[in-house]
Design a protein around this nucleic acid. Structure first.
Length: 492
RNA sequence: CGGGGUGUAGCGUAGCCCGGUAUCGCGCUUGGUUUGGGACCAAGAGGUCGUCAGUUCGAAUCUGGCCACCCCGACCA
């Protein structure tokens, strides 16, 4: 009742906000544009971090940490990158406050404490990292450098939305340096594949892998690879990017190395990142009007057990009966919560854990004690089934796998139904307005056409898919010849 | 930054036009009855009405300044 959320059909974006707040994931803070990630939301992010961090380490990367502040002169070294982020930077200009003589009890910025050089709060860390790499790299023997950092960054967005766009957000950013262009490209693609694999296997969300058009490219990159996911309302969401930086940053920061042959060359770079925005994708991809639906691989609680009892005595009988199940499951690595609160009724708890997206719920009461059974409810299908208590420890892993798979299959089906192929601008606009989704269409490859379509329809080129097949056609906008289809969509 | 809107208890709100110290629901506290799908009854606690000034015997209400937030646009992971 109090926790009721707006339905998706009524107002999708309100549904999203309700979900984030009522499932206790995050809330707006008293700081403009910045959110508080609450414990339940943060525990999902930690699960994501753990899985990604392992994948990074398995591909040879190590973690490090670089400063939050970047001196302005350092920040502006790579011109395109600086320009691209200039409009959204927070800047530290002073290092001290003092009591305000004209305003009792208040503080003011001390005008005598102005910094010689302003510090930019990092919107991304290429600058500070490449200025460090300059000191670390002299020879081909020093390469490659494969570093990741988990950090917060600040981008002063005009309009913010919980998880999807906040002024401060958490992310990881990988920054690598290589001796050859081929090796750097290979790294860029490898990390794109890591992201795709993570999003598909852990988040149960299928993606399109592709390359950004010039207009959508990361400032300072030669190529930006990305994965794009489809949300339930037909809007696309960029879930991760991997950039081939060429020698741009090496040149800007004068990072050279001696080759085996003794020549002095600039190194080749990549950078790649995913952010707490993935939380937004996770929420929007699978959840329903009852609340979150979490894939078991990222759920902080796999199984919640709700005892149904009238008194202390009944509760202790149930607890005794279920205890071996709990400890076996925990031993096997599952997160189990036994909610024995006597302050809430079972129905309240059922609704609460549905809201929070717990994949499996076990209810056990006097009736079950008599029959040696439990009732198991799946969050994804809402299906309830009675199992023998003796078989439950074996059933749980099977059920969790089934849920993970079912959620993915459902999202895959949705994505394929939301993907349309069009050959005329009229069809393009019609489908965009009727259904949204991904639209595969021919494009003449020019920034002008891309810009015109964006202005007229708000749809952007999400990517040029890596698996796009060669196919002669005509640009839906200009009619000029094209050799493959690109993916358009309205996006978050 | 341009256009529009809103600030009243932890949350959501009524009252404002037409001035007389604030309504209702959820939540919270206590007691009792309940407990297999969001319990019920009773009694309570909680508000400088965003802020500063003005008009007035008297301001949530009228006037002006300021601040904050939300929505639509431009920008964006």
């Amino acid at each position: 009742m109090a926790k009721e959320i707006t339905s998706r059909s009524e107002d999708y974006s309100q549904w999203y906000i309700d979900l984030v707040k009522k499932a206790d994931l995050a809330e707006n803070s008293d700081v403009r544009g910045c959110m508080v990630i609450k414990p339940y939301g943060y525990s999902i992010w930690e699960k994501m971090q753990q899985a990604l961090d392992k994948m990074f380490k398995d591909t040879g990367h190590v973690n490090a940490y670089f400063p939050l502040f970047v001196p302005k002169s350092m920040f502006e070294a790579e011109e395109k990158n600086a320009e691209g982020f200039a409009k959204e930077c927070a800047i530290v200009t002073h290092y001290r406050l003092k009591t305000d003589p004209n305003n009792k009890g208040k503080l003011m910025v001390d005008p005598d404490a102005k910094l010689e050089e302003e510090l930019v709060v990092r919107p991304t860390s290429e600058a500070i990292i490449w200025s460090s790499y300059k000191k670390w790299i002299q020879s081909y023997r020093d390469l490659p450098i494969l570093i990741n950092q988990w950090a917060n960054v600040v981008r002063w967005e005009m309009r913010t939305r919980l998880f999807l766009r906040t002024a401060e957000f958490l992310w990881q950013e990988g920054h690598t340096a290589h001796a050859t262009s081929q090796e750097a490209v290979k790294e860029t693609v490898q990390m794109l594949n890591v992201y795709a694999e993570f999003v598909e296997t852990f988040m149960a969300l299928p993606v399109i892998k592709g390359v950004k058009s010039e207009g959508e490219r990361f400032p300072g990159a030669i190529d930006t690879y990305c994965i794009e996911a489809m949300m339930q309302d037909g809007k696309a969401l960029q879930a991760g990017t991997s950039h081939f930086l060429g020698q741009n940053f090496a040149k800007a920061f004068d990072v050279k190395f001696a080759t085996k042959e003794g020549r002095l060359e600039h190194v080749w770079g990549t950078s790649w990142g995913v952010s707490t925005r993935l939380m937004g994708a996770l929420i929007m991809a699978h959840s329903d009007d009852e609340g979150l639906v979490l894939p078991p691989k990222l759920a902080p609680i796999h199984v919640v057990i709700i005892p149904i009892f009238k008194n202390e005595e009944e509760l202790s009988k149930i607890a005794e009966k279920i205890e071996p199940v709990i400890s076996s499951l925990r031993k096997a690595g599952y997160s189990v919560k036994f909610d024995s609160r006597d302050t809430q009724k079972p129905g309240f708890k059922f609704a609460e854990y549905e809201l929070k997206g717990v994949p499996l719920r076990i209810a056990i009461g006097p009736r079950d004690l008599e029959n040696g059974t439990v009732e198991v409810a799946r969050r994804d299908t809402k299906e309830k089934r009675v199992y023998q208590l003796s078989s439950i420890v074996e059933e749980i892993p099977r059920l969790l796998d089934a849920i993970q798979d079912n959620i993915y299959q459902k999202a895959l089906k949705f994505k394929s139904e939301a993907t349309h192929t069009v050959d005329s601008y009229d069809d393009f606009k019609r489908i965009l307005d009727d259904k949204g989704g991904f639209i595969l269409a021919h494009w003449d490859g020019t920034a002008e056409t891309e810009e015109a379509i964006k202005n007229e329809t708000k749809a952007t080129i999400r990517c040029i898919p890596l698996d796009a097949k060669e196919e002669a056609g005509h640009c839906i906008y200009s009619g000029k010849p094209s050799t493959k289809r690109v993916v358009f969509a309205r996006a978050y």
